[in-house]
Simulated scan of single mutants.
Amino acid sequence: MKVCFYGNTGHATTALAARNKLPGVQYTACCPSYPGENLNKLHTTAKKLGITLLQYSCLDEMLDAEKPDILVVDNRFAERYPVETKALLAGIHVYADKPIATNLSDLFDLYKTVRETGKHLWAMHTTRYELHFYTVRQLILNGAIGKVRMVNCQKSYRLGTRPDFFKKRETYGGTILWVSIHAIDMIRMVTGKECLSVYSTQSSADNFGNGEMEIIATSTLELEDNILATISTDYYRPANAHSHDDDRLRVVGTEGIIEAARRDGEHEVRLINASNNGFTPIKQLQPPMIFEDFVHTIEGRISGIFSMRETFLNAYTAIRAQESADKREVIRISHPVNFSFD
């Protein structure tokens, strides 16, 4: 399979990270997704792996010349839908950063295009493939805490210096759609249930000159089966913190509680149930890499960790959560959408 890159605003290098796991994949070319975009990080990462990417000036030129099997879409967050659609209609599988769409009209049209073309579209929900969160998922699937009743998620990032497109909603899309969507994925991952109502709040005050970008956001979700969940998101992690992120997941069940959080710098998983007192960290399990799993799924080797259905349901829930914050009202979802790819 031949892989090309369109932009590098987020997690495009996760495709390169799987190089040694995918001997049949060729990484060949890239192009900027907006005028003046700096692709140095992408080129540097590729060169460290012995890969030289040919850089084109625009997407159409690259697609015509390279004819890739997979396009890695990593452009400005609110501009992904037309590029994803173009690639799918050209018979190209798409590995896109999230959100794959920022409004319901585009999302449903994208779903229609995927169904009609038969091509794969995955969002870069990288948290599912982090050892600690994957371990939590597997323990819950194995019944470690009984029936899930409540989930609490935290997403805290260093702000650093963000690109100018973060400053405008028309190109950024919203903090809930860019950051909180990871927590939405975690909630859906550990519960297997869909959102019935959501109430979100957000604020761009004291955002260090980043225009319209929301620097904090919260969401409260009611899920099927009477499960409750909360999300806290911020860009206030201090610059001198030992890591870029401080992501936390706490899941309460009828027979125990499990947590994934940073302790002494690194993420640990702690479990309290009839057999564990929570003092000793749980040995973490090793999942495949996300892009490795994507390629294997295209080839028909399905792990069940992630899917196109998860991609679309995460986007749908995040769009409704962002809508709640923008309208300052509870959004009720009487009938969860069934994105089917059978």
Rank of each mutant, 00 (worst) to 15 (best):
residue 1 M to G: 13
residue 3 V to S: 08
residue 20 N to P: 05
residue 23 P to D: 07
residue 25 V to L: 04
residue 26 Q to E: 13
residue 35 P to E: 07
residue 38 N to P: 13
residue 43 H to I: 14
residue 50 G to N: 06
residue 59 L to T: 03
residue 60 D to E: 15
residue 65 A to W: 00
residue 67 K to Q: 13
residue 70 I to G: 12
residue 73 V to T: 06
residue 78 A to N: 10
residue 81 Y to H: 12
residue 82 P to A: 01
residue 88 L to P: 09
residue 89 L to H: 07
residue 96 A to F: 06
residue 99 P to E: 04
residue 100 I to V: 09
residue 105 S to D: 14
residue 121 L to G: 14
residue 123 A to E: 08
residue 132 H to K: 06
residue 138 Q to A: 07
residue 144 A to L: 01
residue 162 R to Y: 06
residue 165 F to T: 06
residue 167 K to M: 12
residue 168 K to P: 07
residue 177 L to W: 05
residue 180 S to R: 00
residue 182 H to Q: 04
residue 186 M to S: 14
residue 196 L to M: 05
residue 196 L to G: 00
residue 196 L to R: 10
residue 212 E to D: 12
residue 218 T to C: 10
residue 222 E to F: 00
residue 224 E to M: 07
residue 225 D to H: 11
residue 225 D to W: 02
residue 228 L to Q: 10
residue 229 A to N: 03
residue 229 A to Y: 04
residue 233 T to S: 14
residue 238 P to H: 02
residue 240 N to G: 11
residue 245 D to W: 05
residue 252 V to T: 11
residue 263 R to S: 12
residue 264 D to C: 09
residue 264 D to S: 08
residue 267 H to A: 12
residue 272 I to V: 15
residue 273 N to V: 04
residue 276 N to K: 04
residue 278 G to K: 07
residue 278 G to E: 01
residue 280 T to G: 03
residue 288 P to K: 12
residue 294 F to N: 07
residue 298 I to P: 03
residue 308 M to K: 04
residue 313 L to M: 14
residue 314 N to D: 14
residue 326 D to A: 14
residue 334 S to N: 13
residue 342 D to G: 13
